[in-house]
């Protein structure tokens, strides 16, 4: 079974985000970039499926600037077999990303597509669901467990109030949540080997998709900051303040 994994290059999750002084966006100049954490979980899940003998080949795809090939190489070092880079310097929004991935799905015909549930930059939580709709596949979003059985996949999902399990016909789309697995680190020999794994580059035009953003960002601001209040000496003072000053109990 072939598994397709989509990964995104984003700001490293340890970097403190700073809004540009002119309010046009977030300052990404000279900032450390990395694979989106939810995408790392997607790669890890695919690799585990291969280790279990469920997946036979893992193809990893990324959309973005030339530098996104670093994240594809990372995925190859973690165990993916082959990379596809859809190169563009333009801002790609969720709907266009889903259309590009749909074109890749039609070419590669994977049985399972795994994506992160959201990227930590735009926080949209859309691309996997949109891809599923455009390709007519079922979806298991916010997955905490993925079990492939015959021509179906059972996905346990993290939902409000607990967990829910759905069975999906294959091919299907899965989006990962935090507790699906704990991603491994790439070993040095695997990082070296990954450099020799095949990586195809193509443009959105090669896939017949026009990048035409429907959303425009008018401004980006820093959130209103909250001021630290006071320290209370003991529990009695705390309860007194809550009752008589804040009047919330």
């Amino acid at each position: 079974m072939k598994v397709l994994v989509a990964v995104k290059r984003v700001i490293d999750y340890n970097v403190k985000v700073r809004v540009k002084p002119d309010n046009t966006g977030v300052d990404l100049a000279n900032v450390k970039m990395a694979m989106n954490p939810f995408c790392e979980i997607a790669v890890e899940e695919a690799v585990r499926l291969k280790e279990k003998g469920v997946a036979s080949e893992i193809v990893v795809v990324s959309i973005g600037p030339k530098a996104a090939q670093e994240q594809i190489r990372t995925a190859l070092a973690l165990g993916a077999d082959r990379g596809i880079h859809i190169e563009t310097d333009e801002e790609v929004q969720s709907l266009e990303a889903a259309k590009l991935l749909k074109a890749v799905v039609e070419k590669e015909e994977p049985k399972l597509v795994i994506l992160g549930k959201q990227s930590i930059d735009s926080d949209n939580n859309q691309t996997g669901q949109m891809l599923a709709a455009l390709t007519g596949m079922g979806q298991g979003t916010f997955a905490s467990e993925v079990v492939v059985e015959g021509d179906k996949v059972n996905v346990t999902r993290e939902v409000d109030g607990g967990l829910m399990t759905v069975a999906l016909n294959l091919p299907a789309v899965v989006t990962t949540d935090l507790r699906l697995n704990e991603p491994r680190y790439a070993s040095l020999p695997n990082i070296m080997k990954a450099k020799k794994k095949p990586l195809d580059a193509m443009s959105p035009a090669d896939l017949g998709v026009e990048i035409a953003p429907r959303l425009s960002t008018l401004k980006v601001e820093a959130p209103a900051s909250r001021q630290a209040g006071i320290k209370v000496a003991d529990v009695a003072e705390l309860v007194d303040k809550l009752k008589n000053e804040a009047k919330v109990i």
């Binding site: 889903a98 926080d123 859309q126 691309t127 996997g128 949109m130 993290e158 939902v159 409000d160």
Partner: peptide, 23 residues
């Protein structure tokens, strides 16, 4: 933007060929 809305709404947007504004 609960887990149900986050799950089905992007499908609606894709089927209508429009963008979604999240959250």
């Amino acid at each position: 933007a609960g887990t149900t809305g986050k799950d089905f709404m992007p499908r609606v947007a894709a089927l209508l060929d429009v963008a979604q504004v999240s959250d």
